[in-house]
């Protein structure tokens, strides 16, 4: 319990330090763009693939459910709602957290145990500004964009399967998709992605900075980081879903 409170306190302090540095100079724009590329654009293949398979599975699941009652026309809307409100942001974030969160922890952890972070401080540069903040902001900004792309690729794959297996036409499918998307669903999607992105960036960096005990410590911290990020995303998803549920009720 004491250890948990200790980590919560340190994570809160780190978040506050990053927030302060976001709105003060110097700000490392080039490093931010570099991280947006390496954490964001480099995650495109995993994002699109996840979206495609989610779309295919959701279509089959929806088809099984509605086939018995002869309501195949509900399939596009059911897929749209589940993909945009819940499955897209959560599964997408978990997939990307596996890649990005572990990457951030292992990179920062390795730099710590090889004294690179100390070297940076000695050379007069604040590692929180130069290394940590760009990574935190990059994944927070890029995750919503990636999740939107994931949802879109999921809908495209769902359309192809629905048209082949359920004989649903393109016009009908996409009309139903557009009717299924509510403004609040988009807000829900983007809010969740932003929060999940923040969790990945904050926790990934935090566990990297906490590494002790050489390369073995880096491996341990990376595993812990991924587990904590996964659980935190699911916990945050529950809280956010409850909030949106109260709004939509």
């Amino acid at each position: 319990m004491y250890l948990l409170l200790f980590h919560i306190q340190n994570i809160t302090i780190l978040f506050w330090q990053l927030l302060r540095r976001t709105f003060s100079k110097p700000f490392y724009w080039r490093d931010l763009l570099f991280e947006m590329d390496s954490l964001g654009f480099a995650s495109l293949p995993i994002t699109i693939l996840t979206g495609i398979f989610l779309g295919l599975v959701l279509t089959l699941q929806a088809a099984i459910g509605v086939h018995k009652i002869g309501a195949v026309s509900l399939v596009p809307r059911a897929i749209t709602i589940s993909l945009i409100r819940e499955i897209g942001p959560v599964v997408g974030s978990l997939m990307i957290a596996g890649r990005v969160g572990s990457g951030i922890t292992s990179q920062i952890g390795s730099m710590k145990v090889t004294y690179q972070l100390d070297a940076m401080r000695v050379l007069g540069t604040d590692p929180l500004r130069k290394l940590i903040l760009p990574k935190f902001l990059a994944i927070t900004i890029m995750l919503p964009l990636l999740i939107i792309l994931l949802c879109f690729s999921g809908l495209v794959s769902a359309y192809f399967l629905a048209s082949v297996n359920l004989n649903i036409g393109a016009v009908f499918f996409w009309n139903e998709v557009l009717r299924g998307i509510k403004f609040l669903d988009l807000i829900n999607n983007i809010t969740k992605s932003l929060v999940f992105g923040g969790i990945i960036g904050l926790f990934g960096n935090y566990f990297g900075l906490e590494v002790e005990g050489g390369t073995e410590g880096v491996g341990r911290a990376t595993t812990t980081s991924v587990i904590v990020i996964f659980i935190s995303i699911l916990a945050a998803d529950f809280i956010l879903t409850k909030i949106f549920y109260e709004i939509l009720k």
Partner: peptide, 27 residues
């Protein structure tokens, strides 16, 4: 204060994602 001090860490502590030019010229 650190501007007036140089430090050579154990095993160098070079930034592994930067070239030698960028490491030496970091400051």
């Amino acid at each position: 204060v650190r501007r007036k001090i140089g430090m050579v860490f154990q095993e160098g502590a070079l930034f592994d994602y930067m070239s030698v030019r960028e490491n030496v010229g970091f400051r």
